[in-house]
Design a protein around this nucleic acid. Sequence first.
RNA 1: GGGCGUGUAGAUCAGCGGAAGAUCGCUGCUUUCGCAAAGCAGAGGCCGUGGGUUCAAAUCCCACCACGUCCA
Length: 866
Amino acid sequence: MEPREYENAFFTRQGFRRRACKKCGEAFWAQGEREVCSETPCTPYSFQGNSPFRRSFDLSSFREFYLSFFEKHGHTRLRRYPVVPRWRNDVMFVQASIYDFQPWVTSGAIPPPANPLTISQPCMRFTDIENVGVTGRHLTMFEMMAHHAFNSAEKEVYWKDRCIELCHELVTSELGAAPEEVSYKEEAWEGGGNLGPSVSVGLRGLEIATLVFMQYIRDGEQLKPMPLRVVDTGYGLERFTHMSQGTPTIYEAVFPGILHDLPSEFTLPEAAVLCDHAKNFLFLFTDGIVPSNVREGYLARLLLRRILRTLDKHPGALTLPRLMETVVRHVSKDFPELAGDPKGLAEVLRVEEERFAEALTRGRAQVRRLEERVRKEGRAPNVDDLVMIYDSLGVTPDVAVEELSTKVEVPQDFFARVTELHTRTPTQGWGGYGADSAEAKVPEPPTSVPATVVHYHRDPYTHQFTGRVLWRSGPWVILDQTYFYPTGGGQITDRGELSGVPVEEVVRHGPWVMHKLTTPEAPLPEVGATSEGRIDAPRRRQLMQHHTATHLLNGALRQTLGPHIWQAGAYKGTEGARLDITHWQALTPEEIREVERLVNRVVREDRPVKSYFETRSKAEERFGFGLYQGGAVPGKELRIVEVENFDVEACGGTHCTRTAEVGFVKVLGTERIQDGMVRLHFAAGERALEVLQEHEAILAEASQKLAAPVADIPKAVDRLLERLKEGHKEAKAASKADVKELAQRLSSSPASSHALAGGKLQVVAAKVELDREGLQALAREVTSRPGGIALLAGEDERGAILFFASSDPKQMPARDLLAVALEAWGGKGGGNPSAATGSGPKGPKVQSALDAALARARELSGSAPP
RNA sequence: GGGCGUGUAGAUCAGCGGAAGAUCGCUGCUUUCGCAAAGCAGAGGCCGUGGGUUCAAAUCCCACCACGUCCA
C-alpha cells in the first residue's frame, strides 16, 4: 500500500504525523512526539494496575457504552448474528463482525440492513485454544465490536477520515486515553480477493482495534476499485474491558462472576480454560451445533473434552453440569437465549461425558496392548508411538504415559508433530457459494435482458399463464414473467411445457429464471412474442406438500426434542423428501411416533400457512435467527413462511396455504448420517398414501408366502428361522457323522489303509469325492487317532485337490509327503509338517501322486514295500 | 472435507499366509439344605461386506460399509 493511502483529512487537521517506529521500523501515525508505535514489543504492556481510561467497565457496560456511542453518531444498532454463519459455506464460524455481511452485502448484491451500523458480534477463533489461560490474554471466543459503513456511488456514508475520527474520539475524549499515547500503525489488509489500507490502533502495548478500508479487488497484479467501499472495523470488547480494569490478566476482567463462583481448587490457568471453553460451547450449542466427530461439531466436542480433562485435575471439586449452570447464570444476563434449552443442554452434556469416559477407557486399554505389541518387536515405546496414540486413539500423551510401564519423555513440540502429520488443504476462496453445478452450465444472457417477474411466491396454484419471450439460447428461454419454480432451497424444479414444448428444468440465474427445453431446436414463438406456459400440476402439488411437510416436521421435531434441533439440510422430491437435523443420538421409535402424531395433528387442525415478504431486520427482530433453518436467504426482504403458531422460516419455496392440503405425513425411516446428525426420510400427501400402499402390498405378499395372517408374520418368521437353524445343525451333524463313517470305512479297508512302522502308524490313502473343506474334515478325523496319517485326494470345479495331514509331524511331515506327490503329479502346493495342500489337473496322475506319497511314507517309516 | 486406527464367540480381546483361540459370561453335570465357590463337560463364529492375489486368506492387495480418533 502506498503511504498516500493513509493520508486523510482527520490526520491533517489534527496534526498527526507519519513516522517509522524506532524499534520495529514500521510506519505509524500519531500526534505529538512519539518515536515508537504503541504495540508490543515496541511499547511494553503497561496498563495493568494503571488503566489509561477514566473509568472501569465490565463486559456488559462497555458493550453498551460502545454501541450507544455509535448510535449517538448516527449508526443503527444491530443484534448479534449467530456464531455459526449458515448464510455461507466457506467458513465454519463467524470470526469477525464483517462475516455477518459477507458475501451478499459486501459484494453489493443486497443493501445492508442499516447504513452505517454498529454491532457487537461474538466471534470464534480456535487457533489460540492451546494458549487459553497460559498467556493471560488469549480466548477462543470474544466479541468484536464494530462500526461499518458501506459507500457506493449513490450513497457516500463516511470513509477514512470520519472513521478514524470516531475511533479517536471514543478512545481519547470519551474514554480518557491521552491522545499522544495512541498510535495508528499502517497495515495492508487483504482477504477474500479484496484489499485495502488498514490501521491497527495501539495503546500501552495492546492492539485494541483495527480499522480496515476495503477498497480494491485483486485481479492478478492489477488492483481494481470496488463498487462498494466498505469501512470494516473491529474493536476487542474483552481487550477494552481488560484495559479499563487494569487487571493482571484478561480473565479477571472478563469472567469475574464465574471465577468468583468456581470452587477454590480451580485457580487461574485452569479456571480460564473452564470459563472460556464453557462459554464458547454454550454459544455453539445455542446456535445449533451439536458435538460430533467432524467439522464444527468436533470443535464443540474438543471444548467439552478439554473442560473434562481440566475438571479431572481436582476430582470431586466440580462437575460439568454444575460448571455449565454457573456459566449460563452469568452469561445469560446479556444473552438470554443461552438459557433457552436447559433440558437439552443437560442431556447433551450427559451423553458427551459418557462417550468421553468410554473413549478414555477404551483408549487406555489399547495403549497397554500397543505397548505389549511394541515389546514383541523388541523395542520400547517411543514418541512416534505417542503421536500415533493421540492421533488415532485420542489419548493425550500425559494419559498415555500414565499407562506405559516405561518412561517416555513428551517433547515440547508434541502437538506440532501431530499437526505435521496432517497435510494442509488450501483454504477455499470466495467462489464457493451460489455456484451450483446446474448454474455453471447455463449460458450468460446479456445484461440488457430485464429481470424475470416471478409469481410462484404470490400464487402457487396457477398452472397456466402467458409470458413474453425475452431471450433464447439453444434450449434456454427467458420470459418476462413466469409461474415456474426454479430448483432452489432443496425443492426440485417444476416441469411442464412452453407452447407445447416440454420443459425439463428451470433454474434461477442472477435476476433471471431460465427455462430449459428438452429439445434445443424446438420451434418456439419469436423473441418478443408471447408463449403459453403450462406447469405439471400434480408434480407441483406433490412438491408443495413435501415442502410444507418439511416445515411442519422441523417444527414438530423442535417441539418434541428441544430447541437445539436445527435443519442441517433438506431435499424435497416427488418420490419422497428428507430432512437432516442436528441431534446427538438416533431417534427412538417412540420419539418418531410422537413427532408423527404432532405433525398430523397440525395437518388436521388446518392451520393457515402464511407467506409474505418482510424486511430482514424486522423479520429477525420478530422471529430471531431461527428463521435461517434452510441456510441464509439473499435479499433485503425475506420471504417468511409462517405456519400459524407453529413454525416460521425464511424460505423461497412454494407452499400449501393451509396445513390440511398436506394431507398426511409419514416418516419412512431415520438414520444417523454422522455423529451429531440424524436424517429423516418421509413422504406427504398422495405420495405418503402410495408408499403405505406399497408397504401393504409387501406385507400381503409376505403373509401369503408364509401362509400366515399379517399380524402373525413375526411369529411365523421366528418359527421359520428356528427350523432353519435346526436344519442347519442337523445337516452339520449328519455330515460330521458321514465323515466319521467314511473315515471308519477307509481305515478298515485294506485297499486304502496301510499299517506302517510295525502298526504304530496308520496311513489312509484314498481318492474321495469331497471338496477342500470335506477333505479337511476327513483328514481331521483320520489324524485324530494316534498314528493317523491322511493322504487324501478330492476335487472341485477347478481341478483335483490333495490334502495331506499327519498326527506325527516329526517322523512323517505332511509337507514332505506332498512334495513327493507334487513331483509325480505336476501340481502346485505347500504347507507345514502337520498339514499340506496342493492342487493340479484331474486324471490318472492323481493316483500316481498318492502312490508316490505312500511309497515315501514307507521309506520314512522304515517299512519295506510289500 | 482430509489423514490415521479398529471391525474375530453374548462381552473384552489374542492370532496377522498353512487345519479358528483365550478370559469372562451362558448351559448341563458333580459337590451343597440353599447360595457363593470349585471341578468336569458342552453350546456358541458367513473372522464387517464385496472383489482380487495364492496350491492355501481371519491374515496380503483394492473398493465399500460401520465405529473410533485427529487435523482443517
